[in-house]
Nucleic acid binder design. Structure first.
Length: 563
RNA sequence: UGGGGUGUAGCCAAGUGGUAAGGCAACGGGUUUUGGUCCCGUCAUUCGGAGGUUCGAAUCCUUCCACCCCAGCCA
């Protein structure tokens, strides 16, 4: 179960006060209410961590409720993926799985109740007329000519709406509030509309469907939700949320609070845009590792604990800001550093020959699996005369402060021996073909009995024993500098997609024991980043996908020195 | 020029009358068999601006400014 508590934030403070004052009998019941019209992304994770995290912290419960009131947009596929993702994030709704559609009968009865008390009426204006009557931001609206229909007439019409006697758009049911209200949401909002559409759960049982405003608060009240947390754009809807609760007989009285949704720089986080990326085939699917969807992050190798940690780090407030991607990457590194076994591998190999090491000799050397965690044990790594090292780990003409291998220089092969570069074999283009070294047998394991130090430690793989892996380097999972800004300039964000620098390297030498790696396991390829064993790898060989890079001080130094 | 919000460092964010937490990033140093990790240090005389109240203001008042949301029978 998630170990991360939500950090101090205003909602937490409100709940603490409510518990102290025994509001809601001291109960804390929250809910995560997605509409099943797409996959969950990291923005939803913020809401999930908030809602489930708070419930956990205060010994309450959190419901998973699908807000499925619009059959045109919703699909079963999404209700499954959402459940899978919430579970993967580490949260459990126990028996509290609900659907707004489960309440359709009850909501209908409540609508009848509203009509009976003279607080709702059937309006027969068409959509355009309705818009016209609503007024504008600065001008009040006008009463609908149908506003004064009698209770009997309204009851009759509404029942006939349900019975399917009318075409879509012919009538709607509206709450009778105030057409001159400065808040447009209060100008007689629509609560039921006719939709002759098949619903993913109720099928053809209904042809009228409640709107969000009507269904949401009532569902909260039916379920006994105490704290209904939603994003800022619903702040204007709160008076309406309260109006329904005040005007209908309900078993409980929830309160709505709003918080700012997540914005991540360079990242597409709107469902509208994500759907386009998927439908237009820009990505391979909702779980494409370049996407910020929960399933994409999972496939990329991001641990759910890192996402929870990220949500804890960013906090919860009411101001809309843009969170730096670096925080997510930090959270991922922090988690993976603790949990990922280290392994040696070479992305750009060059051969290193130890000339004074016998041709047929082989050794098994002991390597530590994780210096952060002794309990992860050790493994043995085969060693022989010919090895691969990273091409970049050798410089014929080393720059200042470069402390890896160079002619005449001694370095350590990690867990193996000290070696000294004696010779370089190049081809006719001047490309280094082989590096010839001598080793010091006294330094077995990587330590010198005479106490002498070397500045560099190199990673290596035995040429004779190594396994060949395909390594994919996704440098970034984000795609557009600022989609909203692009669209404001009148452009299409699709025109500004970062191609996503995916580099695929085949046949890269890695330690042989990786042959037993399981799909989904994460490793730190030392000095190269954290990698996840591709879920699809198997018969076609080992595939490692980069999850996130390591902090690279050398790259920074090099950049600084070369300007 | 209707209504509702937000404004604390490059980014996120605590703080709600007693003298600006923390994290990310950045920079400097130490440890290190990963140029990783870890550790230490530096980084807001000031809280969107201007006035005012107060012994004392990021917090209260006035006013101005900037940005976001709302005119779906979407959620």
């Amino acid at each position: 179960m998630p170990e991360n508590k939500m950090p101090s934030n205003f909602i937490r403070t409100i709940i603490q006060e409510d518990v102290r004052k025994n509001t809601h009998q001291g109960q804390v019941v929250t809910r995560f209410p997605p509409e099943p019209n797409g996959y969950l992304h990291i923005g939803h994770a913020k809401s999930i961590c908030l809602n489930f995290g708070l419930a956990l912290e205060f010994g309450g419960r959190c419901h998973l409720r699908f807000d499925d009131t619009n059959p045109l947009k919703e699909e079963d596929l999404y209700v499954h993926s959402i459940q899978e993702d919430v579970r993967w994030l580490g949260y459990d709704w126990d028996r509290h799985l609900y659907f707004a559609s489960d309440y359709f009968e009850r909501l209908y009865d409540l609508a009848l109740e509203l009509i009976r008390s003279g607080k709702a009426y059937v309006c027969s204006l068409n959509q355009e007329e309705t818009r016209h009557y609503r007024g504008t931001l600065t001008e009040p609206g006008k009463d609908s000519p149908y506003r004064d229909r009698t209770v009997e007439e309204n009851l009759d019409l509404f029942q006939r709406m349900r019975a399917g006697e009318f075409a879509e758009g012919q009538h709607v049911l509206r709450a009778k509030i105030d057409m001159a209200h400065p808040n447009l949401n209060m100008r007689d909002p629509v609560v039921y509309r006719i939709m002759h559409a098949r619903h993913h759960r109720t099928g053809d049982a209904w042809c009228i469907y409640p709107t969000y405003d009507f269904a949401h608060g009532l569902s909260d009240a039916i379920e006994g939700v105490t704290h209904s947390l939603c994003s800022m754009e619903f702040e204007d809807h709160r008076p309406l949320y309260d109006w329904f609760l005040d005007n209908l007989p309900l078993p409980s009285r929830p309160r709505q609070y709003e918080f700012a949704r997540l914005n991540l720089n360079y990242t597409v986080l709107s469902k509208r845009r994500l759907i386009r990326l998927v439908q237009e085939g820009v990505v391979s699917g909702w779980d494409d590792p370049r996407l910020p969807t929960i399933s994409g992050l999972r496939r990329r190798g991001v641990p759910s604990a890192a996402i929870r940690r990220f949500c804890q780090l960013i906090g919860v407030g009411k101001s809309e800001g843009i969170v730096d991607m670096a925080i997510l990457e930090h959270a991922i590194r922090e988690e993976l550093n603790k949990s990922a076994p280290r392994v040696m591998g070479v992305l750009d190999p060059v051969k290193l020959v130890i000339v004074n090491y016998a041709q047929e000799k082989e050794e098994e050397l002991q390597a530590v699996n994780n210096p952060e965690d002794e309990s992860m044990g050790t493994r043995s790594v085969p060693f022989c005369r010919e090895l691969f090292i990273e091409r970049d780990d050798f410089r014929e003409d080393p720059p200042r402060k470069y402390f890896r291998l160079a002619p005449g220089r001694e370095v350590r092969l990690r867990y193996a021996y000290f070696v000294t570069c004696e010779d370089v074999i190049k081809d006719e283009d001047g490309q280094v073909q082989e590096i010839h070294c001598t080793y010091d047998p006294e330094t077995r394991g990587g330590a010198a009995p005479d106490g002498r130090k070397v500045k560099g430690t190199l990673h290596w793989v035995s040429a004779r024993h190594c396994l060949r892996a395909t390594v994919s380097l996704y440098d970034r999972l984000f795609m557009v500098p600022d989609p909203t800004a692009e669209e404001k300039k009148g452009g299409d964000f699709m025109q500004h997609l970062n191609p996503g620098s995916l580099t695929v390297l085949k046949d890269r030498p890695v330690e042989p024991h990786l042959g037993r790696a399981q799909a989904g396991e994460r490793y730190q390829l030392e000095r190269k980043g954290y990698f996840c064993v591709d879920p699809d790898s198997g018969p076609q060989g080992l595939v490692l996908n980069r999850t996130v890079t390591l902090r690279d001080t050398w790259a920074k130094l090099e950049k600084k020195h070369t300007g």
